[in-house]
Design a binder for these strands. Structure first.
Lengths: 194, 194
DNA sequence: GCATAGGTAGAGGGATCACTCTACATCGTC
DNA sequence: GACGATGTAGAGTGATCCCTCTACCTATGC
C-alpha cells in the first residue's frame, strides 16, 4: 500500500493529473490492475492516496528538526521549501494542481484545506508567530475574525501562509531568487511582530 | 472573436480545464461548433484564447488608475487582487490551473510566464520598488543574478511577486484575512526598502 | 499433498469525447 | 433578385479511457 501510494505520487508529479491513464498509474505503482483497484477503487481515489502520501513526505522534509531559535527556524524552513521545489516539483503545488484538475471534487478540496492548515499551523509554531493550535483536525475557519488591522500577532499565521504559498508559486518563475525574497519578507514580518 | 474568448474564459473559470467538453465550450461561446473551430482550431487553442482574454481583463482590473503615492498604490493593488478573487475566481490562479491541467504544453507555460512577468513588472512600477523594465516582452530571466543577499531594491520585484502570488493562493483558504496579511507584508517590504 | 487467499496478465465492454463533414439559413453587395 | 461568404444545426467517426472479468500462478497452513 505504501509502495502503491509512492508510485502514484511520482506518476502524478511527473505527468500531472489529467494525462496519466490508469495503465500508466499501474506501471508506476508496480502492481497489477486488479490490486491497484483493490486499494484505490477509482481513479479519483488514486489521486487522494497520492496526495496523502505527499502530505506526509512534505511535512517530514520541511518541518522536521528545525532550529529552535525563531529567526533561524524561519530561514531554514524557507530554504527547505526551496529545496523541495528544486528536487520534487518543477511547477507549483501538487495539491492546488489536483484541485484545479477536478474542481468539483469535495474530498479533494477538503484535503487541500487540511494540508494547508497544517502547514500554516506548523510554520507558526516553529517560528513563534502566533502558533496556538494544531489540535487534531481544526480544519474550519478559526473564527479569528478580522482584527480590524491590528498589528498584533493575530494574523501572523496567515502572513506566514502567504509567504510560503507565494514562494511555492514564484519559485518556478524566479528560482532561488524567490527564496531570498521570501526570507526577506519573513525577517520583516518577524521584526514587526516582536 | 472577443465574444468567443469571453465565453471560453467564463466556461473554464467555472468548470476548470478538464471537465468542460467542447460542446459545453460551444454553448458558452454562443457560436456553432464550426465557427468555434475556425477561430480556435483545437481545444488547447481554446484554452490559450481564454487565458489571453483573462490576461487583459486582469491587468485592467488590478492596475488601472492606481494612486500615485507608492504606499497607497500597494494597498489599493492588493485590495483589488482580493476583489478579483472574490468576484472572479473562487479558487486559485487560472493560469496556474491551466498549466497544471496540461503540464506538457510549452505555449501554455510561456503564456503563464509572460502573464506573471508583466504582473510583477507593473506592480513594481506602480509601487516604486525597483520597477525598471516592462520593455516589450522581456520574458526571460532578468540576469539580475543573485545579489547575494543585498538588501537593496534588487529583488524587490520578486518579493512583490511572492506577496501577490501568496495572496492569490491563500485567499481561497483565508479570505479577506489574507488581504490584510498581504498588506502587512507589503508595508514591511516598503519600509525596509526605502 | 492440497486447499485457500491473494497475486499477475491481459482482453473486452460501455461510454465519452475531440473533431469532421454534410445540409441548410442569413446577410451584405452588385 | 442572384450570389458568395459566412454562419447554424447536428449526425457520425475514430480513438481513448475507466473499469470489470476471466484464466492462471504462487505461497502458506494443515
Amino acid at each position: 500500500m505504501r509502495k502503491i501510494s509512492a508510485g502514484l505520487e511520482q506518476a502524478f508529479a511527473k505527468g500531472g493529473f489529467a494525462e496519466p491513464s490508469v495503465e500508466d498509474l499501474r506501471d508506476a505503482a508496480g502492481v497489477s490492475l486488479r490490486t491497484l483497484y483493490k486499494y484505490t477503487p477509482s481513479r479519483s481515489e488514486m489521486v487522494l492516496a497520492a496526495l496523502e502520501h505527499r502530505h506526509r513526505r512534505y511535512l517530514a522534509r520541511v518541518f522536521e528538526d528545525l532550529p529552535q531559535e525563531p529567526a533561524a527556524a524561519l530561514e531554514a524552513l524557507l530554504s527547505r521549501v526551496g529545496d523541495w521545489m528544486a528536487s520534487e516539483t518543477a511547477h507549483g503545488c501538487l495539491f492546488h494542481a489536483a484541485v484545479a484538475a477536478d474542481p468539483a471534487s469535495q474530498p479533494l478540496r477538503e484535503l487541500l484545506e487540511r494540508h494547508k492548515a497544517e502547514v500554516a499551523a506548523r510554520a507558526a509554531m516553529a517560528t513563534g508567530l502566533g502558533g496556538a493550535g494544531l489540535g487534531g483536525d481544526s480544519v474550519g475557519v478559526d473564527s479569528v475574525g478580522a482584527d480590524s488591522r491590528g498589528e498584533g500577532s493575530g494574523g501572523a499565521e496567515t502572513a506566514l501562509l502567504v509567504i510560503i504559498e507565494g514562494l511555492t508559486q514564484a519559485w518556478p518563475l524566479r528560482g532561488d531568487e524567490a527564496v531570498l525574497a521570501a526570507k526577506r519578507l519573513g525577517r520583516a514580518l518577524q521584526s514587526a511582530t516582536l
